[in-house]
């Protein structure tokens, strides 16, 4: 078990020592049952940090934000930021390191082990509670989630309401950290791609119909992109909304930015957006599942990334975020890469 006091102690120490600029961690949310990200600069506030299965967000996203912020500042504070990092989130840090987006010295990683649990899926919990409204969630030492509902408290084993990605988790223990908390228990799931396999077992037509329906819903709010730590480009190739214009930008560059995807949230443009996003995340997405969790339309976006994660593993034996020294999936090849599909 992760000792929360230990976590707080470590966080407080690095903050007080001035070793880090601030600590990114989780606190109780005032608005939601799930934890909220917190940016702690005052050592006194470290006390508010929590660690439990409501800590769903991938805080690596905020390391990206920090990097962007620093780029804007004239004389940035170059000290690292401390971040509480789950196993999956640490893989995202690895990808950022592999892609040289950040340097190892930019972060101080407070690695937390998920052990045999993970984070809960609020929707699954709601189903378990049969639609009863619930307030504060607490966790007992028997690994139950204790929900306060209108009918009193209900206990549900956390394992029964784990997020799908935690059921299929490939890294329940951080791969990279400065301080490690909890038990190292590198379990591997029995069926890491079970959900995708179910999709694959459908006929091509059925899958086509499924995605037609799902992707037609997309309103292109870009929440998936905004929450994704891998979507760190200043300008996304699919739109020109935030085209970074700097003094070196030529008129031609401005004029010729292509609209690979139109802004209109029509079905074909939505397909285009999600296909491009999936292919740009292959070998990079570490399945934190945040894109899908934040989607207001309940589009199962994670499937697309998971499918390619499976393909990369099966065809090329590549697992994202496991090795920071290797070249990226699409920036490497092996002589024996499969080519049965090629005529």
């Amino acid at each position: 078990m992760v000792n929360l006091d230990e976590l707080k102690k470590e966080a407080k120490r690095v903050l007080e020592d001035g070793k880090v600029k601030y600590v990114i961690g989780y606190v109780k949310s005032k608005a939601s049952n799930m934890a909220a990200p917190a940016f702690v600069t005052d050592p006194e506030e470290i006390e508010n940090l929590i660690w439990d299965p409501t800590c769903v967000q991938n805080l690596t996203k905020f390391i990206v934000d920090e990097k962007k912020r620093k780029a804007q500042q004239k004389k940035p504070d170059t000290r690292p930021v401390a971040v509480v990092s789950k196993g999956c989130d640490s893989r995202a840090i690895n990808v950022l390191l592999q892609e040289k987006y950040i340097e190892r010295d930019d972060v101080f990683i407070l690695g937390v082990a998920c052990e045999d649990l993970g984070v809960i899926d609020e929707k699954k919990l709601a189903q378990k509670l049969k639609g009863k409204r619930f307030g504060e969630l607490t966790f007992d030492d028997k690994k139950n989630v204790v929900a306060t509902t209108t009918d009193g408290t209900v206990k549900v084993p956390v394992k029964e309401v784990l997020a799908e990605r935690c059921v299929e988790c490939q890294a329940n223990t951080p791969l990279i950290y400065d301080v490690f908390l909890g038990e190292e228990d590198r379990r591997k799931p029995d069926a890491p791609f079970a959900s995708v396999e179910k999709m694959e077992s459908l006929s091509n037509k059925e899958r086509g119909a499924f995605w037609q329906e799902q992707l037609s819903k997309c309103v292109r709010c870009y929440a998936c992109r905004s929450t994704c730590p891998m979507c760190y480009c200043d300008e996304c190739v699919v739109d020109t909304i935030n085209f970074a214009v700097t003094p070196d930008t030529t008129a031609q560059e401005k004029a010729l930015r292509i609209k690979w995807i139109e802004r209109a949230s029509t079905k074909s443009e939505n397909f285009g957006y999600h296909l491009v996003r999936a292919i740009h995340l292959v070998g990079r997405c570490i399945d934190c599942g945040e894109c899908e969790r934040v989607c207001p339309l309940d589009i199962p976006i994670r499937f697309l990334n998971k499918k390619l994660e499976k393909t990369a593993k099966e065809l090329f034996d590549y697992e994202p975020g496991m090795d920071t020294e290797k070249p990226a999936l699409v920036a490497s090849f092996k002589d024996e890469d499969p080519e049965e599909f090629i005529r």
């Binding site: 296909l275 292919i279 699409v330 490497s332 890469d337 599909f341």
Partner: peptide, 27 residues
């Protein structure tokens, strides 16, 4: 060789979202 890898991924993705596999070919 890079194409072979990239196209394999694109092909898998396109089939996964329901495009008929015959429509995208490499030779």
């Amino acid at each position: 060789y890079y194409a072979r890898r990239r196209i394999a991924l694109v092909k898998e993705l396109l089939e996964f979202v329901g495009l008929e596999p015959e429509r995208f070919q490499m030779s």
